[in-house]
Write a protein that binds this DNA or RNA. Structure first.
Length: 466
RNA sequence: GGCCCCGUCGUCUAGUGGACUAGGACGCAGCCCUCUCAAGGCUGAGAUCGCGGGUUCGAAUCCCGCCGGGGCUACCA
């Protein structure tokens, strides 16, 4: 979508450090970066830490790490600074207080002394009478006295609130249905719907790109923007939600796949995750599935973003990740595999890489495939034929140069002499050496092991020297 | 309950009134390749386009109603 005016595009994400970094944060960040970069804009990271109860400073670091890992770097943020800092809402309290005071002074907001219990009772009664709930405005006309604690409520002007959503088009909400809502909590902190538009305005955010859960928050925020005399953002974009397999919104509690750290631990490539996330809720209109970041940048546009939530699907992610792994050159795969194979030296990993490449859906799988290199498998139960096969193999392998090709030739000799199918000979060897029925081709499997180790495992399997 | 968003193969989706016997991808099944497992190649199954009414010569596409899912309705964001 074209940018309507000449002013510099500024986008932002505003995660809350209330738990591990969320998949949705990555997705929102991606779309912000895609739109921001394509329009030569600035990407701002703001930390929305106004929930004193749930905030934890260490989670802020987790957010940084996850975003860096994905390559979604920001231009301004708490750690980098920038012209519109500070970028942590907990450090901008004075700003919100000023704005609240202004609203109070102009009669656009008022103090509310109602207790949570009283509010709850109001709400319950409305529900019992089957009438839509709106705050009664008791404290606007007739506030109780002698109560030290108060919140600040915005006096909702009502009317129709319209705005442009780059995905859904022209939106319109009836603000007469919205009750006076709280903008400053009794602890002095602003609520989300107050701090967010104030900061977006102060930070000159031109395009607000966020999850769909904020669609109905937008009229709240726009009324505040208007009341404060700020100019509204040029446009919004409310992205479809990422749903869990069961169709529910991805929650940190119920769905482990919401945790961004999981993908790094499992060995998903950041570029593969990005690719998958881009395709969740957006499509290029062509059959292309694999994109470099630059291709994404060029292809992305909000008018091809889906309106409905999309379910997260491990299978598709696995396939994309496998595609990316297969496209890595051997050197690069070796490098990326290193943290996942702490028991192996780099040379061994490098030798294993060609066989690994087509067998990995994620890097962590490599350990399952190669663990026979650092752990002795239990000797297998073998029938007499298998014992015979291994005995013949031990003879044939004796003194053979320890490389896949000579090993292969020697073993094929055994196969031919036995007149049996190759599998009859190879499977017992595989079992004896790896303890598993599945491995890369037997010659590679053997060659990766030091010759003496391989030979002793074979001998042990047949109960002594051949 | 009220307001808002949404509804095409199991999943992600193409589709904007006739080229739709509804296309692609993942997954699934079969075959080929093959020492096992993958990767790769080929083939196939899989969608009464949520349901019911309209409009039209003609509807997945337009209109209405219903149903279903999700979001907001918090001193969470």
């Amino acid at each position: 979508m074209a940018v309507p005016d000449a002013s510099k595009v500024r986008v932002r994400i505003a995660p809350s450090p209330t738990g591990f970094a969320h998949l949705g944060t990555a997705s929102t960040a991606l779309y912000n970066v895609l739109f921001g970069r394509a329009n030569g804009g600035t990407f701002v990271l703001r930390i929305d830490d106004t929930d004193v109860e749930r905030n934890r400073p260490e989670y802020e670091l987790v957010i940084y790490e996850s975003l860096h890992w994905l390559g979604l770097d920001w231009d301004e943020g708490p750690d980098k600074g920038g012209p519109d800092g500070p970028y942590r809402q907990s450090e901008r309290l004075d700003l919100y207080k000023e704005h609240a005071a202004r609203l109070l002074g102009e009669g656009k907001a008022y103090r509310c002394y109602c207790t949570p219990e009283e509010l709850d009772a109001e709400r319950k009664q409305a529900q019992a009478e089957k009438r839509p709930y709106k705050y009664s405005r008791r404290c606007l006309t007739n506030p109780p006295s002698g109560r030290p604690e108060f919140t600040v409520r915005f006096k909702v002007p009502g009317g129709e609130v319209k705005f442009t959503d780059m995905i859904r088009g022209e939106m319109s909400f009836d603000a007469d249905l919205i009750g006076d809502f709280i903008i400053v909590k009794s602890d002095g902190y602003p609520t989300y719907n107050f701090a967010s538009p104030v900061d977006d305005a102060a930070m000159k955010i031109t395009h607000v790109i966020r999850g769909e859960e904020h669609l109905s928050n937008t009229p709240y925020q726009l009324m505040l923007v208007d009341a404060l005399g700020y100019t509204r953002p040029v446009a919004y974009a409310h992205m479809p939600l990422i749903l869990a397999k069961d169709g529910a919104k991805l929650s940190k509690r119920k769905h482990p796949e919401a945790n961004l750290a999981l993908y790094r631990e499992q060995g998903y490539l950041p570029e593969a995750l990005i690719n998958y996330l881009a395709l969740l809720g957006w499509n290029p209109g062509t059959s292309q599935e694999i994109f470099t970041f630059d291709e994404l940048l060029r292809a992305f546009s909000f008018d091809r973003v889906q309106h409905a939530g999309a379910r997260f699907d491990w299978e598709k992610l696995n396939w994309i990740n496998g595609e990316y792994i297969r496209r890595l050159d051997d050197e690069e795969l070796t490098r990326r595999l290193r943290p996942f194979l702490p028991n192996l030296d780099e040379a061994t990993i490098r030798r294993a890489v060609p066989a690994l490449k087509t067998r990995l859906t994620k890097l962590a799988d490599a350990a399952d495939l190669l663990d026979y290199l650092w752990t002795d498998p239990a000797p297998p139960e073998l029938d007499p034929d298998s014992v015979e096969s291994i005995r013949a193999a031990v003879h044939a392998l004796n003194g053979v140069p320890w490389e896949p090709e000579p090993i292969h030739d020697a073993l094929m000799q055994v196969v031919e002499e036995s007149g049996a199918k190759p599998n009859k000979i190879f499977m017992p060897i595989r079992l004896a050496v790896t303890g598993k029925k599945i491995s890369p081709p037997i010659d590679y499997t053997l060659a990766l092991l030091p010759q003496d180790v391989a030979m002793s495992r074979l001998q042990r399997a047949i109960g002594g020297p051949a």
